[in-house]
């Protein structure tokens, strides 16, 4: 028996995690059986992630559509509490996320901790918006006639989200939370380069009372998956924040087919630590105006 083998026999072997997709609240492998190698920022092997297929993307859209009536019909208070619960669960797994962010981005543990903390705080911030966005986006309109006239924001529907390639946790949370807090459901294309924190985040979402299907996460090739979603006729909007220029044009052209709402990639590099403002929520809201006569 060689020395190396002897040493291995003495050590406890770690139980590795299988990283799968997150669709409809479950964790399936890609139906295609495809996977791809994910490495750390230093090039070391981390895991084999699932490489989502077109069928997976369609399943994810179906799951998001199925979840939409329940989630958009839930009270704002309820949605806010669930987002806050996500923050609680994320805080509880702080150490795990710090380690994953260090692996993915090659940042120091201190910096990674700052990013994870910011992600938790961002969820808390958005959670509070659930029952306030209506007050700042809605209006009672003084029409020139005997009518009650009220405009209120409503969620757009199923939103495809191309997550930023950098900022595997903070960036991801910063694009998911504003979409779902108002009642949309989503299909997220995770960072292709650093997808592992997204699946760990899915574990957090799955244990936070978030109904299955509200957030669906696909790992794999963004250049493959994003156009499938952009051309899908049952997707109402697409956030192209994480798409490169070429992919963004392809997706925007495909999105025109059913007039999806398109949030284009930002013109300048995003500082995810900065105040996000309300733009990411309002991009995926419709305004409904209801008229009713006033009389006796």
């Amino acid at each position: 028996m060689s020395e190396r083998v002897a040493a291995q026999a003495m050590e406890r072997l770690a139980v590795r995690k299988t990283y799968k997709l997150f669709i409809g609240g479950a964790f399936p492998r890609s139906e295609s059986g495809r996977s791809y190698v994910v490495t750390s920022s230093k090039g070391e092997f981390l895991a084999n992630a699932s490489k989502a297929s077109r069928k997976d993307a369609r399943d994810a859209v179906s799951a998001a559509r199925k979840a939409f009536p329940g989630w958009s019909g839930a009270t704002a208070y309820n949605r806010g509490q669930i987002l806050y619960r996500v923050a609680e669960m994320l805080e509880g797994r702080r150490a795990q996320f710090v380690a994953e962010v260090v692996d993915a981005d090659g940042v120091s543990a201190k910096k990674a901790a700052e990013l994870v903390d910011a992600a938790v705080d961002r969820l808390v911030w958005y959670a509070g918006w659930s029952d306030k966005i209506g007050a700042i986006q809605g209006s009672a309109n003084p029409v020139a006639g005997p009518y009650f006239n009220l405009s209120s924001p409503e969620p757009t529907g199923v939103v495809a989200v191309v997550a930023p390639p950098m900022g595997p946790l903070l960036g991801l949370v910063s694009v998911i939370a504003p979409v779902i807090v108002t009642g949309n459901t989503c299909v997220v294309v995770a960072s292709e380069r650093a997808p592992l924190p997204s699946i760990t985040l899915a574990e957090v979402l799955a244990t936070s009372d978030l109904p299955g299907g509200v957030v669906n996460i696909l790992t794999g090739s963004a250049a493959e998956i994003a156009p499938w979603l952009a051309g899908h006729m049952d997707v109402n909007a697409i956030d192209l924040t994480g798409a490169d220029a070429e992919l963004a044009v392809t997706c925007e052209e495909l999105a025109a087919e059913n007039l999806k709402r398109v949030l284009r990639p930002p013109a300048a590099k995003v500082d995810w630590l900065a105040d996000p403002g309300t733009g990411r929520m309002t991009a995926f809201l419709e305004t409904k105006t209801v008229w009713h006569p006033i009389g006796t």
Partner: peptide, 23 residues
Amino acid sequence: AGVVWSNTFNRFDPTSPFGGYKE
């Protein structure tokens, strides 16, 4: 739908937002 008229129809006013959902 972006505008719902109840017990009336085709009312318009500059103070009242108008526009659609979906296509």
